[in-house]
Computed example of a mutant assay.
Amino acid sequence: MSIFGKVALVTGAGQGIGRAIALRLAKDGADIALVDVNEEKIAAVAKEVTALGRKATVFVADVSQQDQVAKSVDYASQELGGFDIIVNNAGIAQIAPLLDVTPAQIDHILKINVQGVLWGIQAAARKFKASNQRGKIINACSIAGHDGFALLGVYSATKFAVRALTQAAAKELASDGITVNAYCPGVVGTDMWVEIDKRLAEITGAEVGATYKKYVSGIALGRAETPEDVAGFVSYLAGPDSDYMTGQSPLIDGGLVYR
């Protein structure tokens, strides 16, 4: 069973995990709406999608803005002739001791990591309901949504919030045939983790790269995660084999955090 012919929208699709998810869903047969704040990056990913034989469209949006997220969903539906799946992937990290966090910092990360997911849930659910169709809502969580990490306290709090939104939305939308799940990656070799490692080095005095190696050394499968590892699991959540699954936020981390 596949998602051939379905339309999927992926936020934060210009790089890293978002790019990998977009390409995997395209390989699975979906047409892809790419959403990001960086037009140049999503334009490049769109070329990769079309090279796979699928349709692609791009929409520049800041996910912290409710109206922009809603417009991106409308645009995807109009341009690609339908709307079946949303992957609320966009997010940022924040590394700081809790005692140093400022109001501006917490406001910024909450708007993107929490409100951005909520606006995506709203926009997708409204589109599915208006079309009287079933749909898939998939949210980006993290191992930090299961275990609060030192120096990543506010980031962890945003990911715990994503788990709560995922559970609540699953309960509210189940009667409409809409499933809501999340994915929780671990230590992924992306630009985000490069920045996390750099900031942790500044705060702790460790050498650059040492904290990354420390976390990777604790992974049972013995290697860092790749964006493609995450994308493979999102493919399952997007497809029909997960139709009886909702409200869940499984760990996909190679064996680092256990629940």
Score class of each variant (00 low, 15 high):
residue 2 S to W: 13
residue 5 G to A: 09
residue 11 T to H: 10
residue 12 G to N: 10
residue 12 G to Q: 11
residue 13 A to P: 00
residue 14 G to W: 02
residue 19 R to C: 07
residue 21 I to A: 14
residue 22 A to M: 14
residue 25 L to S: 03
residue 25 L to W: 04
residue 27 K to P: 05
residue 29 G to N: 15
residue 31 D to N: 15
residue 31 D to W: 08
residue 32 I to S: 08
residue 35 V to L: 08
residue 35 V to Q: 04
residue 40 E to T: 14
residue 41 K to F: 03
residue 41 K to L: 11
residue 45 V to T: 13
residue 47 K to T: 12
residue 51 A to K: 15
residue 53 G to E: 14
residue 54 R to H: 10
residue 56 A to F: 06
residue 60 V to W: 07
residue 63 V to A: 01
residue 65 Q to L: 03
residue 65 Q to N: 12
residue 65 Q to V: 12
residue 66 Q to T: 14
residue 66 Q to A: 15
residue 66 Q to I: 12
residue 70 A to H: 08
residue 75 Y to T: 13
residue 76 A to P: 02
residue 77 S to K: 04
residue 80 L to D: 06
residue 81 G to K: 04
residue 82 G to Y: 05
residue 83 F to A: 06
residue 84 D to A: 05
residue 87 V to W: 04
residue 88 N to Y: 00
residue 89 N to W: 10
residue 90 A to C: 10
residue 90 A to H: 04
residue 91 G to W: 05
residue 91 G to V: 13
residue 92 I to H: 07
residue 93 A to F: 13
residue 94 Q to H: 10
residue 96 A to V: 04
residue 99 L to G: 06
residue 99 L to W: 02
residue 100 D to V: 12
residue 101 V to C: 09
residue 102 T to R: 08
residue 103 P to H: 10
residue 104 A to I: 07
residue 104 A to V: 08
residue 107 D to Y: 01
residue 109 I to A: 12
residue 110 L to D: 09
residue 113 N to K: 13
residue 115 Q to R: 09
residue 116 G to L: 09
residue 117 V to Q: 01
residue 118 L to T: 12
residue 118 L to Q: 12
residue 120 G to A: 03
residue 125 A to G: 07
residue 125 A to E: 10
residue 129 K to N: 05
residue 138 I to T: 02
residue 146 H to Q: 13
residue 147 D to K: 08
residue 149 F to L: 15
residue 152 L to I: 01
residue 153 G to Q: 04
residue 154 V to I: 11
residue 154 V to S: 01
residue 155 Y to G: 10
residue 156 S to E: 06
residue 159 K to V: 14
residue 161 A to R: 00
residue 162 V to R: 00
residue 166 T to G: 01
residue 169 A to N: 04
residue 170 A to C: 10
residue 171 K to V: 03
residue 172 E to T: 09
residue 173 L to S: 12
residue 175 S to W: 11
residue 178 I to Y: 00
residue 180 V to P: 01
residue 181 N to Q: 05
residue 184 C to V: 03
residue 184 C to I: 00
residue 186 G to D: 09
residue 196 I to A: 11
residue 196 I to V: 11
residue 196 I to W: 01
residue 198 K to V: 07
residue 199 R to D: 01
residue 201 A to R: 14
residue 206 A to T: 12
residue 207 E to K: 12
residue 211 T to G: 09
residue 211 T to D: 07
residue 214 K to W: 14
residue 214 K to G: 07
residue 215 Y to G: 03
residue 225 E to N: 03
residue 225 E to C: 00
residue 227 P to E: 14
residue 227 P to T: 10
residue 228 E to F: 07
residue 233 F to I: 02
residue 235 S to P: 11
residue 236 Y to I: 11
residue 236 Y to R: 02
residue 240 P to R: 00
residue 248 Q to H: 02
residue 251 L to N: 05
residue 253 D to F: 00
residue 256 L to H: 03
residue 259 R to Y: 08
residue 259 R to D: 08
